[in-house]
């Protein structure tokens, strides 16, 4: 159930169009646009879907680079504190 934030650098004349196209993708939210950099957050069900989005975004015309900044991943939520391992190495 990954969540990733991305910085998408774009060619300046294409920034707005890229943002529009990216926003149409399922799982992508545009958080902010600063000059020619788009801050996007992906929220998907599986890692494959997440990576698929990154690839798709890269392919949009005018995208220069896509960098992941923060990636949250977890497979299973912990509900118990883990058992303590033994406290010293025995001889």
């Amino acid at each position: 159930m990954p969540i990733t934030s991305l910085l998408i650098r774009t060619k300046a004349e294409r920034t707005a169009a890229i943002a529009d196209e990216a926003a149409l993708l399922q799982g992508v939210e545009i958080a902010e646009i600063r000059n020619d950099i788009i801050v996007a957050v992906t929220d998907t069900a599986t890692r494959d879907e997440d990576k698929g989005l990154w690839d798709t975004l890269e392919q949009i015309t005018g995208v220069l680079t896509v960098d992941a900044i923060y990636h949250n991943f977890e497979d299973v939520l912990d509900t118990e504190a883990p058992e303590m391992i033994s406290q010293e190495t025995e001889q």
Binding site: E58, Q59, T61, V63, L64, T65, D67, A68, D75
Partner: peptide, 20 residues
């Protein structure tokens, strides 16, 4: 193939058209 949940922040760059 991915075997760990390790993380990377670099992507292979843009396609040939989007050179600097």
């Amino acid at each position: 193939a991915i075997t760990t949940a390790a993380l990377s922040v670099w992507f292979i760059g843009c396609g040939s058209e989007a050179a600097l």
